[in-house]
């Protein structure tokens, strides 16, 4: 079963067409993990929506404009933000991935020597 993943946000944002919504509804009816994920996404969105709107102190914005709003400053800030975002959430160099079949073999080799639930299938020495 393929889970809805990013479609959940699109569903909440009303970005799915009617067929997409219908398919998502059918899937959600059957899929508990997606229902839970939908609840989490909606909860996070609700928390963001609930954040208070703060008034900027008088004079802050005009002052900032006077000092920073030259094209060179805008470029520098944009480049810095892009760099930080890239460093924090970018994929970076791939990490090593464990070889599951190798680990499975090692586990199986150890299990075979002991009695246990597999005994009830007869596959023990």
């Amino acid at each position: 079963m393929t889970h809805l993943g990013d479609l959940l946000s699109a569903l909440l944002d009303g970005e799915l067409d009617s067929a997409g919504r219908r398919n998502a509804a059918v899937h959600l009816k059957e899929c508990e993990p997606c229902r839970l994920e939908l609840a989490r996404v909606e909860s996070a969105r609700g928390a963001l929506r609930g954040l208070p709107v703060l008034e900027a102190p008088p004079g802050l914005i005009p002052g900032a404009r006077r000092r920073f709003l030259s094209p060179a400053w805008i470029s520098a800030i944009a480049a810095s933000v892009a760099l930080v975002v890239g460093l924090v959430i970018g994929p970076g160099a791939p990490d090593a991935t464990v070889q599951l079949d190798t680990l499975g073999d090692q586990h199986n080799a150890r299990v075979v020597g002991d009695p246990g639930i597999a005994t009830f299938r007869g596959d023990q020495p």
Binding site: T2, P33, L36, P94, V98, H107, R110, D114
Partner: peptide
């Protein structure tokens, strides 16, 4: 019985990326 394999942090194996949560 079960085994817990512990290693340095690595990438998530492909099969788990769309696995059930």
């Amino acid at each position: 019985s079960f085994s817990v394999f512990e290693a340095g942090r690595g990438a998530t194996p492909e099969v788990f990326r769309s696995a059930t949560a």
